[in-house]
Design a binder for these strands. Structure first.
Length: 570
RNA sequence: CGGGGUGUAGCGCAGCCUGGUUAGCGCGCGUGCCUUGGGAGCACGAGGUCGCCAGUUCGAAUCUGGCCACCCCGACCA
């Protein structure tokens, strides 16, 4: 492709409404343009990158035995009512009516459609397992789209669904997909980590998220500094810890703490550390109010509490419920004397010798409380989020926190949809049985954005070669010259013949402009053709990543390019 | 939806507080000259319903009210 013919509207300045680096750079590099909130058009460069990711996904999915299909984006409400999600999904599901007044929605995901498809045509265990996937535009009416392609409302997703005749088979398929995902993200040239994710009621290690590591990521990845344990923050398990051996013998004492409410305020007021406090959080659930006790310096993990209680709804109580549950105002809740409320306590509470708690009375706290004897606890458990430095749940190492961008998620669904939608098959004994399902998603457009978050510098994007819109850019410099043009054309033709995507910057621009654009759009390898070197039969090769230049003979260009690509470090 | 903020040329902004000629600046864009190893220079030029609607006023980008759009912080997720 010739730069003079390509639509690449690069910008010198950052657009005012872009916040994160990938969004700014994709806009500046002329890869995308916004149509409306969370909805973007892809320009040639952006689309080329997207298609490269798609192709890698496609190849690896096919190699693992999955088959590509293409499902409708407009879906009838009936299917969603059948699965129960028409009511459950909420406003993220974009609903509308057609001219016959029939309710429809734009597909945010395709469990319903695929299950319907498979249940109609698959009747025997002989047809299983079956693994189908598609690469398609999804629409989710996100509450708050942001960060460009990182969280759009319309986005490109690879979604795959597997159907097995047995649990064991489903688990085998799951592991197959996990391996495929590893290969996909490795081939994309990304630094990533597969982490254990919350799998809700299914439990076990049957949900993994694939996180591209980048400090601008929205998710927190918890990993061990000595073993290979890694998990999403909401999932990361914690060891129980030791029970206090010398609980306080002091007598609890109610003290005045006027207008001192927050953990910080109380610890400052009393001159103690937040870890000496117990915070009592009142939560509203669909099974009634619950009190959760967490050490002052820790954070409650709502997903863990939710799973422990098997509730579907859980949120922090408002002041009204706090007064109802504790008898005291917001900010002074404590575990002593709570009635009619389930009291859960994090393991760490048991390790405390002494604690300061709220008195359930305005402007009072109680000091010298023994967590072991001072109040009733219905159950101890792992209810807090991990912190950096916590012991690893699998070995003697310690946990570290890193930021990540979730680009993939694989999940064992079990029979959730096959039961609600009656997807059955006849097993070898002629018995009607529910299919065991799994689902596997990759945010394709987000993967492109994540690659940029992970690979950029002050000059622009540094694309990993496999997903770069072009692998090589040929830049001619200096005054118009037939020799230079001829050399450029020759190399350009040769690289294309070798299947290397090459962009020829044939614009009549000054060198500075060409260099800046080449850097900005992140083409991994730049071949610069100038008068001086060409007179000696050489051109210049430059790596966008290392910024190292080397002069190579015209005959050696192809080899040098291939070496640079194969030696590219993630 | 709650909290904060912004809408003036393709992009980035000034002007608004204190209403008053023809609404400015930089970049970009067009033409010509010139230049060609890190976003050159000169000259000429095109491009604006000042987000929309109403109101106040002799007069509104500027003041008032309503609406809309977009961005940031929270709950969601690939």
């Amino acid at each position: 492709m010739r730069m003079s013919k390509l639509l690449v509207p690069t910008l010198k300045e950052d657009p005012a409404d872009a916040e994160v680096i990938s969004h700014k750079l994709m806009l500046r590099a002329g890869m995308i343009r916004k149509l409306t909130a969370g909805v973007y058009s892809y320009l040639p460069l952006g689309y080329r990158s997207l298609r490269k990711v798609e192709q890698i996904v496609r190849e690896e999915m096919d190699a693992s035995g999955a088959q590509e299909v293409f499902l409708p984006m407009v879906q009838p409400s009936e299917l969603w009512k059948e699965s129960g999600r028409w009511d459950y999904y909420g406003t993220e599901l974009l609903r509308f009516k057609d001219r016959h007044d029939r309710e429809c929605c734009l597909g945010p995901t395709h469990e319903e459609v695929i299950t319907d498809l498979v249940r109609r045509d698959v009747r025997s265990y002989r047809d299983l397992p079956l693994n189908l996937y598609q690469i398609q535009t999804k629409f989710r009416d996100e509450i708050r789209p942001r960060f460009g392609l990182m969280r759009g409302r319309e986005f490109t997703m690879k979604d795959g669904y597997s159907f097995d005749s047995t649990e064991a088979g489903a688990e085998t398929t799951y592991l197959l997909m996990r391996d495929a995902y590893e290969r996909i993200f490795r081939r994309c040239g990304l630094g990533f980590r597969a982490v254990e994710a919350d799998s809700g009621p299914i439990g076990g290690s049957f949900s993994h998220e694939f996180m591209v590591l980048a400090n601008t990521g929205e998710d927190t990845v918890v990993s061990c500094d000595s073993c290979d344990y890694a998990a999403n923050l909401e999932k990361a398990e914690l060891k129980p810890g030791d029970v206090s051996l010398n609980p306080t013998s002091l007598v609890p004492e109610k003290i005045s703490t006027p207008s001192v409410k927050t953990i910080d305020e109380v610890s400052q007021f009393l001159g103690i550390s937040p870890s000496d406090l117990v915070k009592t959080l009142i939560l509203r659930t669909d099974k009634g109010p619950v009190a959760v006790l967490i050490r002052g310096d820790h954070e409650v993990n709502e997903v863990k509490v939710k799973n422990y209680l098997s509730v579907t709804e859980l949120e922090l109580a408002d002041e009204k419920l706090v007064i109802e549950a504790t008898g005291g105002p917001l900010g002074f809740s404590g575990p002593i004397g709570l009635r009619g409320v389930t009291v859960l306590a994090d393991h760490a509470i048991r390790s405390m010798d002494t604690a300061v708690v709220g008195a359930n009375e305005r402007d009072f706290h109680i000091i010298n409380v023994s967590p072991l004897t001072g109040f009733r606890v219905d159950a101890y458990g792992d209810f807090r989020s991990a912190c950096a430095g916590d012991p690893c749940p699998r070995c003697s190492g310690h946990l570290v926190m890193t930021r990540g961008i979730e680009v993939g998620h694989i999940f064992k669904l079990g029979t959730k949809y096959s039961e609600s939608m009656n997807a059955t098959f006849l097993d070898p004994d002629g018995k009607e049985t529910f299919m065991v399902m799994g689902c596997y998603g990759i945010g394709v457009s987000r993967t492109v954005a994540a690659a940029i978050e992970q690979n950029h510098d002050e000059d622009g994007i540094i694309f990993p070669p496999p997903i770069a819109p072009f692998t090589v850019i040929i830049t001619t410099v200096g005054a118009k010259s037939e020799e230079i043009d001829a050399a450029a054309e020759k190399i350009y033709g040769m690289l294309w013949e070798q299947g290397i995507d090459t962009l020829l910057d044939d614009r009549n621009e000054r060198p500075g402009v060409k260099f800046k654009d080449a850097d900005l759009i992140g083409i991994p390898i730049r071949i610069t053709i100038g008068k001086k070197a060409l007179a000696e039969g050489k051109v210049e090769l430059r790596s966008r990543k290392t910024k190292e230049n080397s002069l190579v003979e015209l005959d050696a260009v192809l080899l040098a390019v291939k070496e640079l690509i194969s030696g590219w470090d993630v």
